[in-house]
Every structure is written in C-alpha cells, then in structure tokens.
Nucleic acid binder design. Structure first.
Lengths: 211, 211
DNA sequence: ATCTGTTTCAAACATACGTTTAACTCAAAT
DNA sequence: ATTTGAGTTAAACGTATGTTTGAAACAGAT
C-alpha cells in the first residue's frame, strides 16, 4: 500500500536523522530526501514536524511498553507478590529493550539518543506528550521499581531511577563511539553484550547503595 | 572598557539562553537582544556562532580544569602516594564543580550538555576542539581515577568511568527539568545540593560493585 | 468508462536565520 | 586639530527552513 509505505519510510529516515543530528538540526528536506518521498508528504501525513517527532517516539515506545506489559503479566502469575529483585528487574529491561525491533541495536542506540534529547530539547512539549500518552504504563513500571527497592524513600528512589536512566541512556546511545574510544586507548574492544553485562552490576550496586 | 564589556555580556546571555533552549534553538538575535548589544557584535568579536559556542565552553572549562589541577597539586603534597578513595575523588569533583563560577549551577548544566554533545556527534567540531585543548588535563584525571580503583581491570575501569560520566552528565544537564518533574510527582523538591549528595553514593557504589 | 476520494508532486510562499557591509562614533595617538 | 583604528550600528544579503497550494496521478467503487 502506498500510504503506509510512505509513512514508514518517513519514520525510518526521521528516526535515523534525528538521532544523528538532533531535532532542530534535521530538516524536513533531508528527511524526505533520504526517505525518497516528496517534501510535502510529511505535512500531509503527519501535519507538522512536531507531530512527526511525536510519531517517531510512539512507534518505538508503543511496542516497548507492550512487551514490558506482557512480561509483567506473565511475571505476576509466577510471583504473585510482585516483588522482583533489582537484578531481575534490570534483566527484564535489558531483554525487553533487546527484544524490541528484533534486537536491532542500532535502533536501540537511536532511541536512547532520542530519549536523552527529549529530556533537554523541545521545551518540554515532547516530554509532556509522552507522559500523557504512556502514563499508565510508566506508572506500572514505577510500581515494579518501587517493589524492588522497598528500603528507599520516595525521593531517593526517584533520583536513583534517573541516575540509572542517565547512565544507561548515555552508554547505549554512545555505544559505538565509546567502543571506538576503547579500541583507540586499549587496542581491545568489548562486544555490546559485554557492555550490557558490565552495566547491570554497576546499576544494581548504585541502586542498592547505602546512604 | 567597552570591548570586554560587550564580549562578556554576549557570553553571559549566550550561556543562559543555550542552557535554556539548546544551541540550534537559540538565535544570535535573541542572544544580542538579551545582551543589549548589536546583532553584528557576535560575528565581529567571535567570528561565528560556532566560535561563540566554543568560547562559552572554554570560559567554563578552563577555570574548572585549573581548579582541579590546583586541587591535585595540593593533594599530592599531602598524600604523596597519590591514592584517593573513590569517595574522596567524587568529593573533589563535586567541590570543583560547585566552586567554579561561584557555584552558579546554570553554567554547570551548560557544561554537562556540551559534554554530552561532544560525545554524541562523532564528527562534531566540539569534540575535536576539546580533545586537543584539554588532552593533558583529561589524562591526569584518568591517572587519579586509576589509583582510586586498583582492583578493576582496565576495560572495567574504562566502562565504569563512562557509566559514571553518563549518569552525572544526564543528571546535571537535566537538573532543572528533573527537579520540576519531582515537584510535579511528589509535591516536594530537593535542592541541587541534595541531588549531588544523593548522586555521590550511587556512583561510588557502582564503581565499587562486585563483578 | 466514469466518478470519487486519496496520495503524490513541483513549485511557490513567508519567515527566520547567520553573515556581511558600509557608514558612523569616539577615544587615544600624532 | 587631525588622524587612526577599534567598536558599534542599522540595513541589507543570501540562504535554509516549515508550510501551503493547486494540479496531476492513482486506485477502487459505481
């Protein structure tokens, strides 16, 4: 079908270019050129550049939350008390993240980059959109995290969650570049799986840290 | 003197507006308007917007490294073996960070955002500029970190350092937004000092984590 | 074959941007 | 008093951007 093909090509191109150059630095012309569609197609199908940015997020975030929700449904049957350890929780995250878009790590890096941008670009309109759009899923995740960290006070939990998020977002979004630096400095290079294996105990220990 | 006054006013305005809206989203017109100077003054004094961004960055980074270097000089006299604990090292960082520009945190947020950008765009002018400009200072910091973590293998140290950097960069560059979210969710708000106090044990525990 | 609604397309539009120019100001040196 | 040169200014320049337009192409139903 012509419609969804054009829409998909635009989303693919936008995703890649946004991650590489940021939102404002990416023009609709570069997106439509890379997508091989007409310039006007963006405004026709999405309405505006702002709406396109939101659509890029939704396309990634929807299946991600769907997968997380499915995992949680399954888990609640096995462990009815709903208490996961931090390590179990991180494992779930890693697997959910790795599972989305068929384990395509490039898309993961792109999305993490976009997530970081969403926090400090766009005057917050994007974050508010996401918060309204995925509010219940987000809250469900926070319940999970809360159960995994019963000893933390709410504000401690809030901040440690974001410390963790920042570390993961920075690492995953800069994965390729960091591995290049590592090769440059040590003449050795981890696989991406190795990095994830190193990251998990780092995060778990941070979450568990004494005050 | 008229010269340095105009230059300073431009740097102050640029710093503030960059922090609030990002680089591409901040126009020279908004900068010169806020600074109360003529539009052409930026290109006259700095040459280009790109050079202005570098100048904003240098104005922060130079005293930061000078302060770090001074602290290290002083510390090496007290502890000639040059071994700091992780907590001592983090404390130094926090104090150096807090001390630069009289504890003005907005400037810190800019610096952290620039740091993230420098890592992100592999071909960006910022990263190359920084690497040439502050190479020796960076290496000196890595020696300090190495001495603080004698049990880590080099590649573990490398990655945990960047996990830490990512967490700090994300938190500090999004400090205002995160605190706003906290207020939104909990009707409470930490001070920025509180956040730094929370961050330190998180990072220290991550660095110390069992493998 | 004709009609109908959707999608594509080249072109134009209006605006915002970084940059450049040339005239002007004014204090310090001659 | 005149010259000099750095600094400032308003205006203009060229370009890139997001958006809109109206006609053309297309697909599916009648």
């Amino acid at each position: 079908m012509a419609h969804s093909d054009t829409v998909t090509r635009i989303l693919d191109a936008a995703e890649e270019l946004f991650a590489e150059h940021g939102f404002s630095e990416t023009s609709l012309r570069s997106i439509t050129t890379q997508a091989g569609v007409n310039l006007a197609a963006v405004n026709y199908h999405f309405g505006s550049k702002k709406a396109l940015i939101q659509a890029v997020f939704s396309r990634y975030l929807s299946p991600f939350y769907k997968m997380i929700a499915g995992s949680l449904d399954h888990y609640e049957k096995i462990k009815p008390d709903g208490v996961l350890s931090i390590e179990e929780m991180l494992g779930y995250f890693v697997r959910a993240i790795a599972g989305v878009s068929g384990g395509d790590r490039r898309r993961l890096a792109i999305f993490m980059r976009l997530l970081g941008l969403a926090y400090n670009q766009g005057q917050g309109h994007l974050r508010k959109y996401l918060q309204n759009e995925y509010k219940t899923d987000y809250e469900r995740l926070m319940v999970l995290f809360t159960n995994a960290t019963p000893d933390l006070k709410p504000e401690e939990r809030f901040w440690r969650f974001h410390f963790m998020l920042g570390s993961a977002a920075f690492t995953l979004s800069n994965m390729e570049h960091l591995r290049a630096i590592q090769k440059d400095e040590f003449n050795e290079q981890c696989t991406e799986e190795d990095v994830l294996e190193l990251l998990q105990p780092f995060l778990a220990a941070g979450i568990r840290a004494a005050k």
